[in-house]
């Protein structure tokens, strides 16, 4: 319901507004501004002695880069597993006197069995060309009078042929008169996976230990900073600073150490994988694979960044909790 505007007589003197209550000292935006100020001030502190701080950040960066790159190695190996894992690959190395036409005949015969989803013949010439390109012994091969390499048939059995019944297949192929050697390419993959699970466990242990190292590095750095600023802390306490107020700049510098460490770790990992990319491409070509090297994607980078910052904050928190209590004003 609207109140008629005319109820208040126009002539009545307007009540003078009551004096505003005194502004509360801690307003939320002042608090926020203070946080922002401390965040930037601690960055300023970081930049004021860049060499020593960067060295600390570098130690953290290396400690973070190690588990990160091991994680990437694991990721990549699992990637190999995914592209090759489901089906076994069998290579039939034919006898040296089998020419390409006979090899093709054998391939056609195998095709009729119906349990091979993919058959590829690598002719003697192709094998030689490939070897020449990739092995680096091209010059040496020129010396040879004839092609020493046999033709190869690469078989990929249908999916229901599992690693358990492949040995039977291998035995069967070995009986073929044209076949010199039948090799099951899955075995190394199985061994690799077994090794991977060991390595994976190892990576977790290593990551745990290095996270502890990061905590100790940051804790120690913050502890030194606390003792260097002892007088400042005492004065702040004398003028009524709460523990949270005193803790804040140290927590933020821990955060900055973690941040800088993560960035450095990211750069280190990126540089390392960039250097590895070309040789790995060569290697994957040797295996007829279109293997794409997995590098740090955005989610993984964010995990790295936040775990670095989290460790920085935690390390600072532990140091501050332990050492600030000891400092009391005199």
């Amino acid at each position: 319901m609207k109140r008629p505007a005319a109820t208040r007589p126009q002539s009545a003197p307007r009540p003078t507004p009551a004096p505003r209550p005194k502004k509360p000292l801690t307003q939320s935006h002042a608090w926020l501004a203070h946080h922002l100020y401390v965040l930037l001030a601690s960055l300023g502190q970081f930049l004021r002695s860049p060499v020593s701080n960067l060295m600390t950040a570098a130690v953290i960066g290396i400690a973070l880069a190690l588990p990160t790159s091991l994680y990437l190695v694991l990721e990549n190996t699992q990637h190999i597993g995914q592209s090759w894992g489901g089906t076994a690959q069998i290579s039939l190395f034919l006898k040296a006197n089998i020419d390409d036409a006979k090899a093709q005949q054998l391939a056609d015969k195998l095709q009729q069995r119906g349990d091979m989803q993919h058959i590829r013949v690598i002719s003697r010439q192709e094998a030689l060309q490939e070897y020449r390109n990739l092995s680096g012994f091209g010059e040496a091969l020129n010396v040879l009078q004839e092609n020493p390499l046999p033709a190869v048939i690469v078989l990929q059995p249908v999916a229901n042929i599992t690693p358990s019944n492949t040995p039977k297949l291998i035995e069967e192929f070995k009986q073929f008169p044209e076949v010199e050697l039948a090799q099951f390419d899955m075995r190394w993959l199985q061994r690799l996976f077994a090794m991977m699970s060991v390595v994976e466990r190892g990576v977790w242990i290593l990551a745990g230990l290095l996270a502890l190292a990061v905590l100790l590095i940051i804790g120690n750095t913050i502890r030194l900073a606390i003792y260097n600023r002892r007088e400042e802390i005492e004065i702040h306490k004398l003028f009524g600073a709460t523990d949270a107020f005193i803790r804040r700049p140290f927590l933020y510098s821990g955060l900055w150490y973690g941040f800088m460490g993560s960035i450095l770790a990211w750069l280190l990992v990126y540089a390392a994988f960039w250097m590895l990319r070309e040789p790995i491409q060569q290697l994957s070509l040797l295996y007829h694979s279109e293997f794409e090297l997995v590098t740090l994607d955005i989610p993984a980078s964010l995990v790295l960044l936040f775990s670095g910052m989290g460790l920085g904050l935690l390390g600072a928190w532990l140091a501050v909790g332990k050492h600030l209590r000891v400092i009391q004003p005199k």
């Binding site: 801690t26 307003q27 002042a30 203070h34 702040h236 003028f239």
Partner: peptide, 13 residues
Amino acid sequence: ALPLVIAGFRHQE
């Protein structure tokens, strides 16, 4: 300024 910063006063104040 230290006691004022501690008490959370605003910049202009």
